[in-house]
Amino acid sequence: NQASVVANQLIPINVALTLVMMRSEVVTPVGIPAEDIPRLVSMQVNRAVPLGTTLMPDMVKGYA
């Protein structure tokens, strides 16, 4: 099963993503693939993302 990107903490809106904010985990439904974590660094989410939430492509500005 493919690992997805999961919030490692509350990720506020309009804050640049850092490695420490994200972890990889096998979850259902599948979200952004874990291998895209380096690409996500410095991008921003378009809504607050609670701890443990799977990041979906539509949550990250400029990802999709």
Rank of each mutant, 00 (worst) to 15 (best):
V49T: 05
V30Y: 14
P57L: 04
N1Y: 15
M21I: 02
I11D: 00
N8L: 05
M56A: 07
N46A: 15
D36H: 15
Q9F: 07
R47M: 14
T53P: 02
L10Q: 12
D36Q: 14
R47L: 06
D36L: 10
D58I: 09
E25I: 06
Y63H: 04
P50S: 08
M21H: 07
V15S: 12
M56K: 08
V6R: 03
A48L: 12
P33R: 07
A34L: 03
V60Q: 01
V26N: 15
P50I: 05
T54S: 04
A3L: 12
G52I: 03
L10P: 11
M21A: 04
T54C: 06
L51M: 15
N46Y: 12
L55A: 02
A64E: 09
V30T: 14
R39A: 10
V15P: 00
A16R: 11
N8E: 08
L10W: 14
N1G: 15
S42W: 13
T28Y: 12
V20M: 15
S24G: 12
L10I: 13
R23A: 06
A16T: 08
L51P: 10
V20E: 07
Q2T: 14
P33E: 04
K61F: 09
R47E: 07
A3I: 07
V49G: 01
T28G: 07
A16N: 10
P38M: 10
I13P: 13
P50T: 10
D36I: 09
A7T: 09
L55H: 02
S42Q: 12
V49C: 06
E35W: 08
R47T: 15
L51K: 12
Q2P: 13
I37R: 08
Q9Y: 10
R23L: 04
Q9C: 07
Q44T: 15
M59S: 05
V49M: 06
A7E: 01
V26P: 08
L19P: 08
L51F: 13
D58M: 12
P12T: 06
T18Y: 03
A7I: 03
Q9M: 11
S24K: 12
M21E: 00
M59F: 10
S42P: 00
V41D: 02
A48K: 09
V49F: 03
N46M: 12
M59R: 03
N8I: 05
N8T: 14
P33L: 07
D36M: 11
Q2A: 09
I13S: 12
L40E: 00
G52C: 04
D36P: 01
S24P: 10
A7Q: 01
K61I: 14
P57F: 06
P29T: 05
A48S: 15
T28E: 15
R47N: 08
Y63T: 03
L19S: 07
N46L: 15
G62I: 04
G31L: 02
P33S: 08
S4N: 00
N8V: 08
A34D: 07
L19W: 12
V49I: 12
L51W: 14
D58K: 09
I32P: 01
P33D: 07
E25W: 08
Q9S: 11
P38S: 14
P50F: 07
M22Q: 00
R23N: 05
M21F: 04
G31S: 01
M56I: 07
V41H: 04
A34M: 07
V41G: 00
L17S: 00
E35A: 11
M56G: 05
N14R: 07
